[in-house]
Design a protein around this nucleic acid. Sequence first.
DNA 1: CATTAAGGGTACCGTACGGTACGGTACAGG
DNA 2: CCTGTACCGTACCGTACGGTACCCTTAATG
Lengths: 215, 215
Amino acid sequence: MLTPNAIEKAKNIPELTERQSEVLESALALLVEGGEKALTTAKIASASNCSKESLYKWFGDRDGLISAMMAFQGSKVGAAVGQEDLGSAKAFKDYLIRFARELLSVLAGDTSLALNRLAIGQASNEASPLGPLLIENGRGVIEAKAVGFLNSAAEKNYLRFDDARQTYHILYGLIVRDAHVRLLLGERRELVMKNFERDAQTAIAQFYQLYGVEE
Amino acid sequence: MLTPNAIEKAKNIPELTERQSEVLESALALLVEGGEKALTTAKIASASNCSKESLYKWFGDRDGLISAMMAFQGSKVGAAVGQEDLGSAKAFKDYLIRFARELLSVLAGDTSLALNRLAIGQASNEASPLGPLLIENGRGVIEAKAVGFLNSAAEKNYLRFDDARQTYHILYGLIVRDAHVRLLLGERRELVMKNFERDAQTAIAQFYQLYGVEE
DNA sequence: CATTAAGGGTACCGTACGGTACGGTACAGG
DNA sequence: CCTGTACCGTACCGTACGGTACCCTTAATG
């Protein structure tokens, strides 16, 4: 099994010192607070009591710093969704509802929204690495996990489908709908998430209508 | 019935002269080409052979110009989705498939992506009007239309559901899934839209599984 | 022809930001 | 004690951009 350090080396991400992690943390806070326009090198330096020269020494340039922020945040995502429970058909269905709740919560989180907005704002620049980075670190991780438990559920005959990845995309659509984009556009969370709990349950119920195995 | 001019007046949008529309058109082209960073007042002026002074006279400031771009583009959306056909159950289902295709095509269009990226990039600024503007002019128009034909279909007993708006959100989720966000993040269109036709048909088939009336 | 309004071209200003340079400080190792 | 290293704080530079002012051409009107 790979240690975190080994993974970082494999991705060519230099290991971060404690100090550097602190800086990234306060940079994220700054981004959440005021969006990209607030994310100037001077403000990052002053907010984290560090010199601009150190920023440039550690991260190369502003883009490097932002990339580091993404990777740093991504490294914290993995554990977000709890352990699945395939003990029984009922237990698995409950787990799916928890998964739906968790997915919506993550997507609606301040940091997630801020980073997605940042990456999307730069995505018109073909050379920007932020979009792919976010897809890999965020969506990719969750999708891989989901494909895993979907396949397990199929083996146990809780669900029936052809392709786990496609099926996950349907599940995603039923859960998220247009909520993510509306949040990204600035619609108020209370409004978009008004029926949070009911929506999560409805999504899973409909997912079972499409892919569940009748008993 | 309201004339277009009356609508514009009601929204406090000044009518646009031919010249001003040309300027907005070339500004949109500029935005599609190079993203927000390419959208400077100097470039807009030079690209449309007009003086900066005229820009400021017509649109107030840069934000006003961008808002005008959104409204201008929005005013062209209405006719995008063709006329519905509720002549028979089969005809309506075919229409839904066309609707799915059309929705995906619109969302994946260059101008739509560029404007959404622009609005999302500014959405962290609480005071930015771009997000609401885009929601109203883009999503709102399509949603209103969809709610209309869903209700008609329910009356004709092609579909069965409680709330048309909620049902439309499900339909949206089944059709779009995470395609929109992935496109916004810069993932290549060929990749996201690989199974465009099949996905549209699958979405409608599943929608009927959830809301169709059995015969 | 004279007058006037609209608008194009351009020079200019203030400012904000990315990036660099430099002096000063704390500390570790010999 | 000396030296090197890491880093903070700050001043500084070049540039790009939003916004303004001014001059010129064009064309319509009397």
